[in-house]
């Protein structure tokens, strides 16, 4: 057998060798695609099958197709859009304010070591206080309107950004600082040319965490006192026993969360392209 295979002319083996390689690459791509979606598909299959087979009470967990139907109705009636808009506006406002405020503040605190030493324990306390525990305080001080909701999102988003920015400044490669010092680069130029670009990746980690937090906290806040928003939609649906609608609200929130994270990841990639091997 082997003797026969080896005896084949070389001209014939070349195209034969290329074709399986190409097919294998396509197969590999397909396999990764399948591999990545297999868990989600499995979850949906179980979700669809369990109520239908009577494994769970269909009243409390309607099948996935029922939920999709309810989702479509909400979309057509415009309710979904209205509530999503309300949620996104609050979420993005709080998140945006936190980015605008916490990044510069974190850079300042990180740069002035004594300030970081003094404020460190205080920041640690705030960070470890669950933002939602403070929700009643925010409502007490700012009422149940938009202000208190944006404020709680802002508050919750501030900590991951602030702490990551502070550690980003502290974590700049000391060799680069020595280099800058040897070149007599000081003050603002050192900050602009070395510290700031070196800090970007870690700052973005904080921003991404804050992105997740902004949706998490907002939904909870909307469940307590709101007339619109996805949190309100979920809560109100549950009160009215519109269970499919409740699940429709929940999957909308997951989708928004995943999407928001993807957006932040791609922004991060743009800013830190030098870290990802390009074309390698």
């Amino acid at each position: 057998m082997t003797a026969l295979l080896e005896a084949r002319p070389a001209t014939r083996t070349t195209p034969v060798a290329i074709r399986p390689q190409r097919t294998r690459r396509a197969l590999d791509a397909l396999l990764t695609g399948v591999g990545k979606s297999v868990a989600i598909v499995a979850l949906l299959v179980v979700w669809e099958a369990a109520p239908r087979l009577g494994l769970v009470d269909a009243t409390f967990l309607p099948s996935f197709s029922t939920v999709l139907g309810a989702w479509w109705d909400l979309l057509v009636s415009g309710q979904l859009l209205e509530n999503t808009q309300a949620s996104l506006a609050r979420s993005l406002a709080g998140f945006g304010l936190a980015v605008a405020g916490a990044v510069p503040l974190g850079l300042l605190i990180g740069w002035y070591k004594p300030v970081a030493t003094v404020l460190g324990p205080l920041l640690e306390v705030f960070r470890n206080t669950a933002a939602l525990a403070l929700l009643p305080v925010f409502v007490l001080l700012l009422g149940i309107g938009e202000t208190s909701k944006i404020a709680i999102v802002f508050y919750a988003c501030t900590w991951p950004i602030l702490l990551n920015t502070i550690s980003a400044v502290g974590g700049v490669d000391p060799t680069l600082l020595r280099l800058a010092k040897s070149m007599n680069l000081g003050g603002f130029r050192l900050f602009q040319k070395v510290i700031l670009p070196a800090a970007v990746p870690t700052v973005f980690t904080g921003i991404r965490l804050a992105g997740a937090v902004s949706i998490l906290v907002l939904v909870a806040a909307e469940m307590i006192g709101a007339k619109a928003g996805l949190g309100y939609l979920i809560n109100a649906s549950q009160y009215n026993f519109a269970i499919p609608q409740m699940y429709a609200g929940i999957i909308t929130i997951s989708a928004i969360g995943v999407l928001f994270n993807q957006v932040l990841v791609s922004v991060e990639r743009r800013f830190t392209s030098w870290r990802v091997p390009v074309g390698a």
Binding site: L176, R178, M183
Partner: peptide, 20 residues
């Protein structure tokens, strides 16, 4: 008395700015 650009240092760890 201090650092200056009349002396150039080459470090063992290269000290290149990774984003440039």
């Amino acid at each position: 008395t201090g650092p200056g650009l009349d002396r150039g240092i080459v470090f063992q760890q290269y000290a290149l700015l990774p984003w440039r």
